[in-house]
Design a protein around this nucleic acid. Structure first.
Length: 156
DNA sequence: GCCAACGTTGGC
DNA sequence: GCCAACGTTGGC
């Protein structure tokens, strides 16, 4: 099993939105970056991912989700009315993909980006690196466990 | 809202 | 294939 991190702007789609979705499941659509897409396509059912809130007052990791369906074509790219429409993606030759995710839980304590940046153990995590704009990224088992332990601490 | 950093586009 | 221009991301 592999671990990942998924970024989302909470004003667009928050962890709470996923929790309240039917079955706690939803599509992870709208990824329009090749590297992020390649990571989406590398995901397997049963993998787990951190849910990260970006572009908000307190950017940070807030919860955990499970990948419940491996990558398949992102249909929002085919829809001319979608903000994610991309005419270069066709049914015959899809350019963009999405996975389905399922809410597993909120962290006992959200771990803000400012705190993640303070730990040398996480220096290799793309999220904390300069100018990182990647919205889907791998997390090593060691990083995963370290972050879970951080979330269990009452005082950062 | 500012702006640095980045990815993409397209002329050449 | 280079690279300037442009649009986007996302922390602050």
């Amino acid at each position: 099993m592999n671990y990942w991190l998924l970024k989302s702007e909470p004003s667009v789609f928050s962890l709470d939105d996923l929790r309240k979705a039917p079955g706690g499941r939803d599509h992870w659509d709208g990824v329009r970056n090749y590297q992020a897409r390649n990571y989406l396509c590398a995901m397997a059912e049963g993998d787990q991912a951190f849910f990260y809130h970006s572009n908000c007052v307190r950017p940070g990791i807030v919860g955990i989700v499970e990948i419940c369906r491996a990558a398949y074509p992102d249909h929002t790219a085919f829809d001319p009315h979608s903000p994610y429409h991309d005419p270069r993606s066709t049914h015959a030759n899809p350019r963009w993909y999405m996975v389905d995710v399922r809410f597993l839980g909120a962290l006992a304590r959200p771990v803000p980006l400012s705190e993640l940046k303070q730990h040398p153990e996480l220096a290799e995590l793309p999220l904390v690196q300069r100018g990182c704009r990647l919205s889907v990224m791998p997390v090593t088992a060691a990083q995963w466990q370290f972050i879970l332990a951080l979330a269990e601490r009452n005082n950062p």
